[in-house]
Simulated assay, not measured.
Amino acid sequence: MIVTFLVDNYVDKAGLVAEHGFSALIQANGKNILFDAGQTGAIVSNLKAMGIDPRNIDFIVLSHGHYDHTGGLSYLNLSEKVKIYSHKKIDSRHLRVRPDGDYDYIGIDETFFSNNKHLFSFNDSVSEIDRGIFLSGGIGRFEEFDSDKNLFIEDTGLFSKDYFPDEQYLAVREENGWSIITGCSHAGIVNIVKDFKSKFGDEIIKSVIGGFHLFRSGEKELQHVSDFLMNNDIKYIITGHCTGINAICHFSTIFQKRFIPIKVGLTVEM
């Protein structure tokens, strides 16, 4: 499996663009999978700069409906043949509370979704979308994780803490183990790994890739997460976007050569 990061919060290569968002091109089992799309046209600029032809994308997977993972879709000039896989609740009313107590909508662009709904294939449980490539469906909660106290959801006129009903991860099976790819881990990366084990068994996890949403977490939570990942003998921890500088420094110290920080233009081969 080869993963190339197209959008992330960090970049150190000339000609590439960083933004608050996430997208990766995953080459696995003979397929080119676009996982999330960032928030703006940065994805198009970076694809061009890296010499990647978007026409070679076989299908798209969305981790959840936040704007910084779905906004770039509007810039891609998608073919009618490219299917977008997402949870059936991808259009959930995700909100962020402002200092004045009012809310900003931060979900998928409603016009784009309405105009392109025919391209979507929805799921709400484990689904093998191609050989050895699985969508998790909704993520179980095995322990408490509050990723961001500013995030809310509106459902039938009621406002509550966002429980991310649309979030899911991608699980890729290869001969030497599994890779878990997540967008933001709003459910918590510990819950994601436990959810994987509950659905796929006690398999070898060779890598966990994506944002862990720990930028608001303290040392106690960071230690809990790193202890859990270490105890589960995961070979590579590859993270960025919403993970946060403190968590990245912490993981770098703990996992050393097993840790890879994400940045735009980085390619890793499992």
Rank of each mutant, 00 (worst) to 15 (best):
L135W: 00
H241L: 00
D124F: 06
H241Q: 11
E110I: 05
V97H: 01
V97T: 12
H87K: 10
A37W: 03
L16N: 04
N56F: 12
S179E: 13
K83Q: 09
V3A: 05
C242N: 10
Y103P: 07
I260V: 13
M230L: 14
N9I: 00
D100K: 04
T4Q: 12
C184H: 15
V11S: 09
S79V: 02
K257D: 14
E221K: 13
S226L: 03
L34P: 11
N116A: 07
L266M: 14
I262Q: 09
I2D: 13
V82F: 01
I84R: 08
K263S: 15
S217W: 03
F120E: 06
G140Y: 07
S121Y: 08
N231I: 00
L95F: 09
F228P: 05
G137L: 07
M50H: 04
I237M: 01
V172K: 04
N116M: 06
S207C: 05
F200C: 05
Q39K: 13
L47R: 05
R55G: 06
V268N: 07
N231C: 00
G65A: 04
F228V: 01
S185P: 12
S114K: 15
D195N: 14
H224T: 12
I254D: 03
D166A: 15
R55A: 15
E144L: 05
K13F: 12
V61H: 04
S160P: 01
L62P: 10
R96Q: 08
E175I: 06
E203W: 02
I26C: 10
T239V: 13
F120T: 04
F145N: 10
A187Y: 09
M1K: 09
L25Q: 00
V172T: 11
G107D: 03
F134L: 00
D155R: 11
F122D: 02
L222K: 08
L76N: 05
F142W: 10
V193Q: 06
Q27E: 15
I106R: 09
K31M: 07
K88R: 15
R93Q: 13
L119Q: 15
R258P: 05
F5W: 07
L95T: 11
L78F: 09
N231D: 12
A28G: 02
D104W: 06
S45H: 13
